[in-house]
Nucleic acid binder design. Structure first.
Lengths: 122, 122
DNA sequence: CCGTATCCTTCCCGATACTG
DNA sequence: CAGTATCGGGAAGGATACGG
């Protein structure tokens, strides 16, 4: 299921093992994961609500990103037995511990945007 | 030079514009960038020294990552005219402002590794 | 010493259609 | 409502050789 042989993969693992910063980032990594986590930090928890909050995301990506966040131990899934058509996601203790980190990343982004003339995409 | 048409690219831009966290992460993003920045924060500045510190990186990737960090305004390049064979990189004010962010990411990574049983790569 | 230039592989992510 | 399955494009990144 995963090519253990590719140098691409190996390098990634070595960096994650060697550098706590890359390690932390590897748990957040992914196109939609930061936004999804931000929704959860904001109190939104239902699948359909996250979907509505991030309107341009596809079902496939939302499901995939949620599943990966669950695998990484950042969130947990809770499907209500009484109403099968309701699924809620919540932060684990590990995920919750990221809150100050996200706050700081948020702050830095906000202030950098006001102070830096332009953001030239590389 | 860049496909402005791909939804992939468009989504990326929309997220960066909408979410300060994704915006911040977009400036750090890249296989080797966090490690490279960490070297600079640690006082290492010469190309050859960074190369030695991150032994498994290829010249191509080191050069490319450094160039992108320069484009993003995080570092500046200084080639010594007297000795053309010596190039030093330094943090810009913008890059320096990331130091507390990196410290926190470092801290979180360190403590998470000790508290979480295992890191199951997704 | 500090890069460039090519080529090629891997894998992320979007589109679309379908399901209990 | 909350997913799954399959397909395909393209960007990121690695190997290798060459250059001032």
């Amino acid at each position: 299921m995963r090519k253990e042989q590719s140098t691409n993969y190996e390098n990634r693992q070595k960096i994650i093992a060697a550098c706590p910063i890359s390690y932390t980032l590897s748990l957040i990594e992914g196109r939609w994961k930061p936004m999804i986590l931000h929704q959860l930090f904001s109190g939104i928890s239902r699948y359909s609500e996250i979907k509505k909050a991030i309107s341009i995301i596809t079902e496939r990506m939302l499901t995939a990103e949620l599943k990966e966040l669950e695998l990484r131990g950042m969130i947990h899934r809770k499907s209500h037995e009484e109403a099968m058509l309701k699924v809620e996601y919540g932060l684990t203790e590990r995920g919750e511990s990221l809150r100050p980190v996200f706050q700081q990343l948020w702050q830095w982004g906000k202030s950098d945007r006001t102070t830096s003339a332009a953001f030239t995409k590389s």
